[in-house]
Design a protein around this nucleic acid. Structure first.
Lengths: 333, 333
DNA sequence: GTGAAAGCGCTAACAG
DNA sequence: CTGTTAGCGCTTTCAC
């Protein structure tokens, strides 16, 4: 491996001079500069970023911790896509650490990124208790931003989406269409999004519906199964609200497979506004979750672009499409 | 920031002793070990990974360069999900660099990862000429694995999928259903997958179909538009083959919107076996691309688990579902 | 302007 | 077993 010293020798100057021309520090004489560049080209020198970052005490990496339960759905895709996009936009690089499926593993993942001296780290966690997160935030030399869950402390390290309000928005729409008996398909717990959305459902739905709950795990398949359970249950309903679009889509397939029409017989709505929802039949009514905004906000906070407190309580907007219709006159179930 | 020296002082030992207990080198006396652990706890010491990696000359990061054109579809999602999964499986971390949309930017991204001293880097590029890639492979001290395109050199740094053969498999099936007039919806160029698949289409389709080509950019929307163009064109056809599932799904929506039934009037097939294909109506016939295998192979090659030459010429398997049917007796168009 | 020398925080001989 | 001493490759005073 060719180091800065090799370049220096090759150019007949000192290490510091090479460093200077590379960093445009102090004015180096033009002729020497040329010599150095020539030597760099000849030797094929590539500065070692580990060494550089150790010396300068700063890096250009932004860490992202993510529980692998959100993996591999449109939500994950959007999250990562936007994280990478905004990082690059600010000349940083995204580095990943898998939070897997326990508090210990999440904490480990954060620890890795902190010890890598990332410029900042974004945490999309599920299991770690808030007290623990708070401790990490306070002990870490770089900003650690907690995404998608509301902390009672450290508001400037916290960007969350108001999923309760989001749930209300969708429920309001469902109610406005005359639905009173609305079933709920939940995502995998623990999850702040799921909890809040479910609460919004519970608080707004007819009290008879308490039993109209089926548990999924965010995947289409689980939505499919959950819907079957609901259909086979005793309680009648005219609409299904699923905690995300994937499950809503799975549910629609289940309804169709059982000969039920959407939305004529049963209406279905979801959350997150996955792209496919527009192309599905029927196209999916959903809440557009402001993931992009959330990530942008986090990245800008880390790179120090937005001096003020990060945006909080983002809600998202309702996307009305075909999967929700007026309540049918006769309950089919 | 608390360093190893602080811990050493706190425990009343030398730096090397601390290092030893941390790395389980040489047997350190139990009582001293305890002292050190106590000091670590007291000081809240967190080892600096940059320093450690600089000193040991090895890192636990695996780099991934990816052109941002594949971003944000199911293909991207699967790629990143699996990359992260296999990295973690081998106790490594995934680090990202965006290849954006030009050869220069791709090379830059690779360079960053190389200079970060990643254990290895995986390159999913589109624009960089092979000669350039070859040069990078040879000059880099760590394995640089080129994914999804066939290099004429460096076979052990190259894992590709035989998209031509994959294309043939789908075409064979379409032909076996009696289709002769098959339209093609292509992805964004340049792309090795697209080129090879399109070639397979061209080599197997009826010569009359040369004009039955529409250009997309891999997105559902572009598939939708491409299908409209095809429908509005003069040439008749009974099937559409799209270079990926997203475009196939967009195309199906376009056909439906124009009152055409799939597959009764027009059959549609895609590539990649996106999860949603199973839930769509009609469910999508597609080729399951072995992305997971490709990534697994790359990661194992990097961590030195598979001593032999990496797998090459993976093809994938046909997933037969409902979007392709027998050719209709009367061409609808 | 440029070079020498002292770090950044850690590991790895080498003595003892 | 443990401490001392050099590095790893780069930046950054501080003199000249």
């Amino acid at each position: 491996m060719v180091t800065m010293l090799d370049v220096a020798r090759c150019a007949g100057v000192s290490k510091s001079t090479v460093s200077r021309v590379l960093n445009n520090k102090n004015v180096v004489r033009e002729e020497i500069k040329a010599l150095v560049y020539k030597a760099i080209a000849e030797t094929g020198y590539r500065p070692n970023l580990l060494a550089q970052q150790l010396a300068t005490q700063k890096t250009s990496m932004i860490g992202l911790v993510i529980t692998n339960e959100v993996y591999n759905g449109p939500f994950f895709s959007t999250l990562v896509y936007n994280a990478a996009k905004f990082c690059e936009q600010h000349d940083h690089r995204l580095i990943f650490a898998d939070g897997k499926h326990s508090a210990d593993e999440e904490i480990n993942a954060i620890d890795f990124l902190v010890r890598m001296k990332c410029a900042g780290v974004m945490v999309y966690a599920r299991h770690t208790p808030h007290a623990e997160l708070e401790k990490i935030i306070n002990e870490s030399p770089m900003p650690v931003m907690i995404l998608n869950q509301r902390l009672s402390v450290c508001p400037d390290r916290n960007i969350f989406i108001d999923h309760y309000r989001g749930g209300e928005i969708v429920m309001d729409y469902l109610l406005s269409q005359g639905h009173t008996h609305i079933a709920w398909i939940g995502g995998k717990m623990p999850s702040p999004s799921n909890t809040a959305r479910q609460q919004a459902w519970r608080d707004n739905v007819h009290p008879d519906c308490a039993a109209l709950v089926a548990q999924g795990d965010w995947s289409m398949e689980s939505g499919y199964q959950a819907a079957l359970t609901l259909i086979d249950g005793a309680a009648p309903f005219t609409a299904i609200l699923a905690a995300n679009d994937d499950m809503a889509l799975g549910a629609i397939k289940a309804l169709k497979d059982r000969g039920l029409r959407v939305p004529q017989d049963i209406s279905v709505a979801g959350f997150d506004n996955a792209k496919i929802g527009h192309y599905f039949s029927p196209s999916l009514t959903t809440l557009d979750t402001p993931i992009e905004q959330m990530i942008q906000c986090a990245v800008e906070q880390i790179v120090g672009l937005s001096p003020d407190r990060p945006a909080q309580g983002l809600t998202g907007t309702l996307v009305i499409r075909d999967s929700v219709g007026p309540v049918p006159v006769l309950m089919p179930n």
